[in-house]
Amino acid sequence: MLLSRVLTAAVLIPLVLLAIFKLPNSIFSLVWGAIILGGSWEWSNLAGYKNQGKRSVLVIATAVALFVFMQAPVVLQNLLLWIACLGWLAISISLFVFPVQLMARGYPTSLLTAVGFVVLVPAWYALSRLHGMENGAVHVAYFLFLIWIADSAAYFAGRAFGKNKLAPTISPGKTREGALGAIAGTAVYATVFGIFNEELIFDFSAFILLSVVTVLFSICGDLFESLAKRKRGIKDSGSILPGHGGILDRVDSLLCAAPIYLVGLTLIGNGLNA
């Protein structure tokens, strides 16, 4: 399990870096869009669609949504991005304050379908837009490694010290010690990156804070997908990547963290103009 995980990562990481730094923004957005559409295929299963035809329709609808969103006026795009962040904040709080109610509630397929759009579309837009910014490639690379380092730190810290469950009702595998490990790993990584890329950063301490907040939300994004899977009684969302489960399992933490990171950058002074 661990071995195939490491091997997959060893192949994926250079590919991803190549895509981030070599591709122009338009192509990058297309590639990232294709991944999002793969996620939408898996989400349609989580939402409760069995029929492959219906699932395909949903994927096409997502593609249309991405296209429409791309054409929308910047004002509207910004607004939806902020609303997505508020939505994630509400979801994150609910995950910890009302886990029992969330597990007990029956969510109709229509609602879950809508949630899929709200989760996937802003995430696609946020990362594409981040990539299109000045020094966007560096920011995207920083962001992706932030999430992966936090993931790995959580995994190893959880294995070494894990005792107290983080959210026992939703995901029995996650521990508070793992989450602390993720925060510690993030802080170290953000500091090191900040020292070597001072010219990219508006405010050092704010940047580290933003990185930690982004990671906290990425954990919530993870928990959110666990919730969706548990409610459907599924272990992995798909089985495309050996050892990593499906596409959604890989990008679940990105989905929530990408809008948060972009909006956070705006708030501390980098990026995003009207």
Binding site: D203, S205, L209, T266, L267, I268, G269
Partner: peptide, 10 residues
């Protein structure tokens, strides 16, 4: 944006 910058102690 102004509020954000204030929150981070700018």
């Amino acid at each position: 944006k102004m509020m954000g910058r204030m929150l981070v102690g700018d």
